[in-house]
Design a protein around this nucleic acid. Structure first.
Lengths: 145, 145
DNA sequence: TTATATTTGCAACATAATTGCATTAAAATG
DNA sequence: CATTTTAATGCAATTATGTTGCAAATATAA
């Protein structure tokens, strides 16, 4: 799992995207984190390596191709995480629960927790489900006690 | 159910808020809609009747008192709906499902649908759940067929 | 009717996101 | 390997969204 760069380059090519510095950098940052990453954080980390507009466009392209998925936190800020295998441009499989910690504000993708089936009123056709739980993450509830 | 104004005035007084024109207007608009209403829509409808800042502050005050609740749609836009009875400043009971129609972009509060209980990994402590379903609402899926 | 406490509106500012366009860089081609 | 083609970047300008401080106005209490 060492040579990420080679892996990322394949990922880009596979999706018809050119191998550029800003794109590799975004993948590098996202893969090094255990929770979803906010746009402002990315912007700050990348600094002047890439224009703000470029970052927006990189994220948008990645989302369209199914490389990353977007989660909105309780404030409405966009956060991004690398999709698990199985996502593609045509179909996102990110219907797991996202956990938004009230203390550290990290967003965890709880891949193991599936969203239970849901009964909706007649006529409504559910396409996607998006469940965000808020509370304290394991690390923060430790510290509080 | 005709004289809304009197009802709204009581609601304001009960929550220690003064009876002002912008507040009554917001309540009037929200109560006349069958789905959650976006901040931009409210801003547009109110036009120059109220300053943009006033609208933000009215919405914020209402949310704090438990008169309305905020739902973020898939784009991260704030939408507001009048709370069902039982909400207060201390406790929001809006843990029902919100349905975001992909076609008409309305947001429905599905009060009758409860969010199923959830198993989370050890250590995580869930405080609130927020489930947004996307797809076609009853009215739009009619039209498509 | 006057006093007081809240609420409003304005101006200025801060942040987040989008668009058009010229320039640059990556991959494809011969 | 030079050249062409196509995609991506960076910059400037613009729009949308949300916030803060403060003076003026207004609702309620006294």
């Amino acid at each position: 799992m060492e040579d990420n760069t080679a892996r990322f380059e394949k990922l880009l090519v596979k999706n018809g995207l050119k191998r550029t510095a800003p794109r590799l950098q975004v993948l590098e940052i996202l893969s090094g984190r255990d929770s979803a990453t906010s746009q402002p954080y990315l912007e700050q980390v990348m600094g002047k390596d890439a224009d703000r507009v470029t970052l927006y466009r990189v994220l948008q392209a990645f989302e369209e191709k199914g490389i990353i998925h977007k989660v909105l936190d309780q404030q409405g800020t966009a956060n991004y995480a690398i999709c698990s295998d199985g996502c593609s441009a045509h179909e996102h499989h990110d219907e797991h629960v996202h956990f938004n910690c009230d203390n550290c504000h990290k967003i965890y993708c709880l891949d193991t927790v599936k969203i239970p089936a849901l009964k909706v009123p007649a006529g409504f056709k559910v396409d996607h489900l998006n469940l965000i739980a808020t509370g304290l993450c394991a690390s923060c509830s430790d510290k509080v006690n």
